[in-house]
C-alpha cells in the first residue's frame, strides 16, 4: 500500500506538470528557447543601449567578457553569486559544527590510515598538474567555459589529494584565513563597483576589447577570488567528512 502510494503520487505530480507544459500556452512560451531577457544579456545591453556591433574586438561594452554566462554570473547577477558563496560557506561550516562541535577541543584526531606507495609517489605530480589546469581554467573564465567554480573544485581536488597522500591534514587555520580573506575581497570589489559605477558589483574601470585576455579585468579578479574561496571551502568540506572519528571507537552521547 505504502509502496504503491509512493509510486502513484510522484507519477501524478509529474504527469500534471507534463500536461500543463505540453498542452497549454505555458509550454509554448517555455520551450520557445529564446527570450528577450536572454537576448538583452547576450548583447550586453542591460544598462545602456545595445552596441552597433558585437564581436571580437568590440570596445565600450558594459561587460567585455566573451563568455556570456560569466558576464551574467559575475556582473549582472553578481549579488546572487555572493549569496551562493555565502550559502556554500554556511553549509560547510554547519557540517563542521555538526560533526565536530565541542569535541574538537579534546584534540582526538581520526586514525590515520597509511597511504599506499602509488599515491605517495604520484601525488605531487598530479597535484602540480591539477594546480596548473585549475588556475588556467580560473583565469580564462571570461573567455572560455569553466571559471571559478570548476577551477576551484580542481584546485580543491589537488589539495585533497596532497592531504590524503601525506597523511596529515593541511592547516585548518590557513584554509579559514583564505576563506575569510577571499570573502572580504569579493565584498570589497562589489563596494568598489558601487563607488565608481552605479551598482554593487558593477564592472568599473576600462573594460578593454572583447576577446582579449585583458578584457573585463574586474571579472577576472572576481573569478580568481571565487576560485580561491571555492577551493578552500571544498577542501574544508572534504576534510570535515574525512576526519570524522572512527565510529567503532565512538561512545554514544
Amino acid at each position: 500500500m505504502t509502496r504503491l502510494l509512493a509510486a502513484l503520487v510522484p507519477l501524478g505530480i509529474v504527469g500534471m506538470i507534463a500536461f500543463f507544459l505540453f498542452t497549454g500556452e505555458t509550454g509554448d512560451r517555455m520551450f520557445r528557447g529564446r527570450s528577450e531577457l536572454g537576448d538583452t544579456f547576450s548583447r550586453r545591453a542591460v544598462r545602456s543601449d545595445p552596441p552597433n556591433r558585437l564581436g571580437p574586438g568590440s570596445r565600450g561594452l558594459e561587460n567585455a567578457a566573451a563568455n556570456t554566462v560569466t558576464a551574467i554570473v559575475l556582473d549582472y547577477r553578481g549579488f546572487d553569486t555572493l549569496g551562493e558563496v555565502t550559502v556554500l560557506f554556511a553549509a560547510v561550516a554547519g557540517a563542521g559544527l555538526a560533526l565536530f562541535g565541542r569535541r574538537r577541543r579534546r584534540g582526538k584526531a581520526a586514525p590515520v590510515t597509511p597511504s599506499s606507495l602509488i599515491l605517495t609517489a604520484a601525488a605531487p605530480w598530479v597535484f602540480l598538474f591539477l594546480f596548473v589546469v585549475g588556475f588556467a581554467i580560473v583565469l580564462h573564465g571570461h573567455l572560455t567555459p569553466g571559471g571559478g567554480f570548476p577551477g576551484g573544485a580542481l584546485l580543491a581536488a589537488g589539495l585533497v589529494l596532497l592531504m590524503s597522500a601525506s597523511g596529515h591534514e593541511s592547516s585548518a587555520r590557513r584554509l579559514h584565513l583564505l576563506e575569510g580573506l577571499s570573502g572580504f575581497a569579493f565584498v570589497a570589489v562589489g563596494v568598489a563597483g558601487l563607488v565608481w559605477r552605479d551598482s554593487f558589483l558593477a564592472h568599473f574601470g576600462d573594460a578593454g576589447a572583447l576577446g582579449a585576455f585583458w578584457s573585463a579585468p574586474v571579472t577576472i579578479l572576481l573569478y580568481l577570488i571565487i576560485g580561491l574561496k571555492v577551493s578552500a571551502e571544498l577542501t574544508n568540506a572534504v576534510r570535515t567528512l574525512a576526519n570524522v572519528e572512527d565510529p567503532t571507537t565512538e561512545e554514544v552521547p
Partner: peptide, 13 residues
C-alpha cells in the same frame, strides 16, 4: 559552462 561545472562538482566532488 554548466557541463564543466556539473562534471567537476556535480559528478566528481
Amino acid at each position: 559552462d554548466v557541463a564543466i561545472t556539473q562534471a567537476v562538482v556535480g559528478c566528481g566532488l
